[in-house]
Write a protein that binds this DNA or RNA. Structure first.
Lengths: 145, 145
DNA sequence: TTCGGTGCAAATTTTTTGCATCTAC
DNA sequence: GTAGATGCAAAAAATTTGCACCGAA
C-alpha cells in the first residue's frame, strides 16, 4: 500500500526519538538535516502512520495534535496550565471496553484516558507566586470569613 | 467576574439543547434568531463557560472541538468513521485518579475517557457494502488459504 | 513503466485578537 | 461611570490539497 520512502522513515524515526511531538516539532527536527522536506509530506506520513497504528495520537486542547511512538498501549497526563504531556502511571485496562460495551450498538475497539492536572514545574511556580503575594500582605492572621 | 449578557445566555442555552455541538454548530443555531451575533463572541463565551466548568469539552481528532452541557461527569464514545459522539455507558470512575497518582509530581484533578469504535449506522453500512461485494464475486466456496 | 509520494504554495478549517462601540453592574 | 463584552474583520494556527515532477516497486 504505502511505499517505503526516505521521508516516511525520517518521520517515523523522528517520532520515535521524541517524547510526544507535534507535527510541527517533527517537521523542525527533520528539516535541520533535510532542508527540502515539506510540512505537507510530514503531515501525509503522520496520517499514514497513525492510520496503520504504527503511531498513536494524543489530543490536546488549545494546541496541535501530538504523536506517540510508544508501542504498548498506555494513558497520558496533560498539564492544564502549560500543556505538557507525559505517560500516566496507570496500567492499561484491557477490560475497559467490555464494561462500556452497552453503548447503543457501538462496536468498541480501543480507548484513551487523559488525566488532567498540574505538572510538577507549574505547581512549583504557583507555590512560589503565592509566597510572594503573602509576603506583600500585612500578615493577615485571624480575620474570620 | 464574567458579566451576564444576552449572548452568554444564548450560547449556554444552545449548548444545553444540543447533543455534542461544535462551536460552529452553536453559532449556526444562534445566528438564525439572532443574526448579529458573531463567531468571536460564541468562542469567547464557550471559553468562559468551559473555564468555569459550566460546560465540558470533548476532543475529536480531525475535527473541531465539541462541547457538552451534561452536568454529571461521564465518558464518550466516538465513531472512527463518521466522527459521531455519544455518551458512554461506563459509569464515572471516581477512583481513577488515585490509581494514577504516581505520575511524577502531577497533581491530578480529573480525567476523560474516549472509547473508539464504529457506530451502529456505520456498522450497518459496512455490512451492506460487504454483501454487495460478495454478490459480485463468483461465489468462492472452499479455496484454502 | 507506473502509480504513489514529494515539494511547494495556496486553500481550508478552526480559533484568536485588535479596536471602536456598547452595556451590565 | 467604568471595565468588561460585543461585532466585525483580519490574523494566526493547524492541517489539507492541487499539481507538476520524481522515484520505489
Amino acid at each position: 500500500m504505502t511505499r517505503k520512502t526516505i521521508q516516511q522513515r525520517l518521520v517515523l524515526e523522528a517520532a520515535q526519538r521524541m517524547r510526544h511531538p507535534s507535527a510541527e516539532e517533527i517537521y523542525q527536527a527533520i528539516v535541520r538535516k533535510h532542508p527540502n522536506i515539506s510540512r505537507g509530506t510530514v503531515y501525509r506520513n503522520l496520517h499514514n502512520l497513525t492510520a496503520s497504528d504504527v503511531l498513536g495520537r494524543v489530543l490536546i486542547p488549545g494546541g496541535a495534535e501530538r504523536f506517540d511512538a510508544t508501542t504498548p498501549p498506555h494513558y497520558h497526563a496533560v498539564c492544564k496550565l502549560c500543556g505538557a504531556v507525559q505517560d500516566a502511571a496507570l496500567p492499561y485496562q484491557d477490560r475497559m471496553q467490555d464494561a462500556a460495551a452497552a453503548c447503543d450498538g457501538f462496536v468498541l475497539e480501543k480507548h484513551d484516558i487523559i488525566f488532567w492536572g498540574i505538572c510538577k514545574e507549574c505547581a512549583t511556580q504557583i507555590a512560589a507566586q503565592k509566597d510572594q503575594v503573602e509576603e506583600e500582605r500585612p500578615a493577615k492572621p485571624t480575620s474570620g470569613g
